[in-house]
Structures are given as structure tokens and as C-alpha cells.
């Protein structure tokens, strides 16, 4: 670590649980953040400021005027710019020492698979179930820890699927993919600005803990936030032994990818565009 790094990250290094070793592991980490909206904004800002060495920031969307209420990566001057590039500029302004790779694309199929394979930690900051399940399948396949957050109206949910461990549940164990899923759109339902900050910041906290190898992650626990009454609730869930995604597969077949025609389908109508 350089003198500048020792100074920049000194308040982390002072933490007994983290120290120089933990910060060094953070610096050596590659985080994939899918979605540069309400959740991805605070998550990316904290991962960058805390020194995650490489951040791949993916979003196919451009900054919209209605995003500025909560998507704090972006500025009014950058309305119309690709969110991934706008995010890169925001992160570079805070910490020019880390590598930020902006990708303006809707991740699916082989591109998603290849990116997840190269990442150490994946943050799901997306706004639709189809992408959430596609990310989960790729993380199961490559045994990558997945930090998943969601926020709508005054409701937040956050959990970790630590798929490096064979006994850890995956997203599909908790909420199996189904055709009758009700997609709730923030463009229609609205979302309380700091709620996305709370949930996205907790995703950053979990991701940094995983990167540093400290503490206890949210694996097997789902946190529910009611921001209107400001109450947190915790529920527990287990790996589904018969899970269609992370459960037993035919001999020689890697888990995560199913022989199904719609395995990488994207929802055309259920997408919450302005994030």
C-alpha cells in the first residue's frame, strides 16, 4: 500500500476488524454493480470511496431528469448522458486511484456470464425480476457472492446470497421465478429518495465486508425495511434442497443454468425505466 493509500484509507485501517489486511483485500477486489440507479448510486459511491480496486458499473439507461430525486451518482448537468459514464465520472472525482469500467448495456446471456465470472462480488441494483433471476443464475454458476437490494415506495429489502458456500440459499430459493410475478414499477408507484440510499448503502456495507472477509453477512437472512414507520424486520430462509437453480443437477452439469428456452428472457413490459 502506498503512503497515499495508507492515508486515504486510514479510517478503515484503524478498525480492528478490518486493518491493513482487510483494506488490502478491498483494494484487490473487483465488484460488478448491475444498475446505476437509486441503489447502484450509493453502492458505487461507497465502494469507490472505500477503495474497491475495480468496479464494473453496468446500466443500459441514460440519466433522466426524474432520476435526480434519488440517483446521487448523477447530476443535472449530465441529464441525457449514459448512466454508466455519468457514474464513472462521479466515482473518478471521489477516487481517481481505482479502475472503473462503465458499460452501457442491458446485461444478459453470455455477456452477463462473462462479467460475473471475472468479478469477486456482484451487487444486484436492478429494477426487474427477469434480470435479478439472470444475475442469480450466473452467480450460482460461478459461485460468486451476490448482494441483492430492492426498494419501492417506502419498502426496502436486502439480502446476501453467498454462493461460494454450497449450503447457502440463492435468490431463487427465496423467491422462485414465476410467470405470475407482480412487477411493481417505481415509475408508477414512486419511491422515497433516501430509502434507495439506505438500501444501496447497506449493499455497499455487505459487499465491503465480503471483500475484506470480515463479519457475518446477511446470507440466509432477508431484511425488510418499512421506511414509513422506520422499522426493520428480519426473516430467515434456507437453501431449498430442490431449488431448480442451485439444487442438484444431472451429472456433470454445472448448476445455475437450466435447459429451458426462456432462461435468459428479459421482461419487455415490466421494466422500471427511470430506475
Amino acid at each position: 500500500m502506498t503512503d497515499d493509500q495508507l492515508l486515504r484509507y486510514s479510517r478503515h485501517i484503524l478498525l480492528d476488524a478490518l486493518g491493513i489486511e482487510g483494506q488490502a483485500r478491498i483494494l484487490a477486489s473487483h465488484a460488478l454493480i448491475v444498475g446505476a440507479g437509486g441503489l447502484g448510486s450509493p453502492a458505487a459511491l461507497y465502494l469507490a470511496s472505500a477503495g474497491v480496486g475495480k468496479i464494473t458499473l453496468v446500466d443500459d439507461d441514460s440519466v433522466d431528469f426524474t432520476n435526480l430525486q434519488r440517483q446521487i451518482l448523477h447530476t443535472q448537468a449530465r441529464v441525457g448522458m449514459a448512466k454508466a459514464e455519468s457514474g464513472r465520472q462521479a466515482l473518478a472525482a471521489i477516487n481517481p486511484e481505482i479502475a472503473v469500467v462503465p458499460l452501457q448495456q442491458r446485461l444478459s446471456g453470455p455477456a452477463l456470464d462473462a462479467l460475473v465470472a471475472t468479478a469477486d462480488i456482484v451487487l444486484d441494483c436492478t429494477d426487474n425480476f427477469a434480470t435479478r433471476h439472470a444475475i442469480n443464475r450466473a452467480c450460482v454458476h460461478h459461485k460468486k457472492p451476490l448482494v441483492s437490494g430492492a426498494a419501492i415506495r417506502f419498502d426496502g429489502q436486502i439480502s446476501v446470497y453467498d454462493l461460494r458456500r454450497d449450503d447457502a440459499p440463492c435468490y431463487h430459493c427465496l423467491f422462485p421465478e414465476g410467470d405470475d410475478v407482480e412487477e411493481v414499477r417505481c415509475a408508477v408507484m414512486g419511491v422515497f429518495a433516501p430509502l434507495t440510499g439506505i438500501v444501496g448503502t447497506m449493499q455497499a456495507a455487505e459487499a465491503l465486508k465480503l471483500a475484506a472477509g470480515i463479519g457475518q453477512s446477511l446470507s440466509g437472512r432477508l431484511l425488510l425495511l418499512d421506511a414509513l414507520d422506520m422499522e426493520w424486520r428480519t426473516v430467515r430462509f434456507r437453501k431449498d434442497p430442490a431449488c431448480a437453480v442451485c439444487g442438484p443437477t444431472a451429472a456433470g452439469q454445472a448448476p445455475g443454468y437450466l435447459p429451458r428456452p426462456d432462461a435468459d428472457r428479459e421482461s419487455a413490459g415490466g421494466v422500471c425505466r427511470p430506475g
Binding site: G35, I152, V184, M189, T196, R236, F237
Partner: peptide, 29 residues
């Protein structure tokens, strides 16, 4: 969720002084 654990069976007996939590998946981001 009942007593913080997931319930799958509708026949699961419940105690009157406990709470049942109904949770819906969120996707907004």
C-alpha cells in the same frame, strides 16, 4: 414467515399470540 422462518404448508398450525408476516418480492432499484 412465522416465528421468522418461512412457512410453505397452509396446514401449519399457528399460535394466536404470534405474528404471521406476509412478504412480497420487491424488484425496484
Amino acid at each position: 414467515f412465522y416465528r421468522r422462518e418461512m412457512v410453505f404448508d397452509l396446514a401449519t398450525p399457528l399460535a394466536d399470540d404470534e405474528e404471521l408476516m406476509i412478504v412480497q418480492a420487491l424488484s425496484g432499484g
